[in-house]
Design a protein around this nucleic acid. Structure first.
Lengths: 102, 102
DNA sequence: TCAATTGGTTACTTTATGTAAGTTAGTATA
DNA sequence: TATACTAACTTACATAAAGTAACCAATTGA
């Protein structure tokens, strides 16, 4: 009874079940943000955040924009593909409020 | 701008972003199953599966039932709390089919 | 008696994550 | 001019999590 699971589903699950990935996407749902803001908002280390943002950019879920101001400002935001994860995040929110106690 | 994230949401995300947890729940959506069936269906190692099933049982998401047949049969299934995650799983499925290529 | 099966556990290795210090570039301050 | 500060990372090192494979106990079948 070996593996008969949809590879797309498996890939999606692989992405979302990496530590911090979900929280980063959730955080970006509230709008474009800078590196240090994401870092302090969700409590992820810079080392891992940097790694995750690169992965998410490669997957086309997150967009990185450089504003050559002074000092330089770099903003991360969700692409359409990323924003399409909003219902899922809301779903997790709903489930957690129904089934987990504070 | 420090942590202002709902602790219930954070806990839910913490659960779901552990490796294999999502796949185990997804697999159990198709009905009660034995240890070795889950193991071979999703490709998780017995060592981690054992750990995850214990965690999920403690969280009240999975139920473990012993049937004293011969040889003994042990079945894992989703509780109501676990079944309530179905919409979420369907959501991941839908997203993956829309945004990931085979 | 010997091998096979289920549902695990144990010991050991490899990979992922956390922590903290360092880097680069551009100000601002003394 | 020298020092310090900030953002956005990167690097080196330590610890935690996951993978691999061997082992175990109970039961059954050849």
């Amino acid at each position: 009874m070996d593996k008969s699971i949809c590879p797309r589903f498996e890939k999606a699950m692989g992405l979302l079940s990496q530590r911090w990935t979900g929280m980063i996407i959730y955080q970006l749902l509230s709008g474009p943000q800078r590196f240090c803001n994401i870092e302090s908002s969700i409590g992820v280390s810079g080392r891992v955040l940097s790694e995750r943002l690169k992965d998410l950019e490669n997957e086309g879920i997150v967009k990185r924009e450089v504003f050559p101001e002074t000092p330089v400002r770099i903003e991360y935001s969700l692409t359409e593909k990323g924003k399409a994860l909003e219902p899922l995040m809301k779903n997790i929110e709903t489930w957690s409020h129904t089934w987990l106690n504070a």
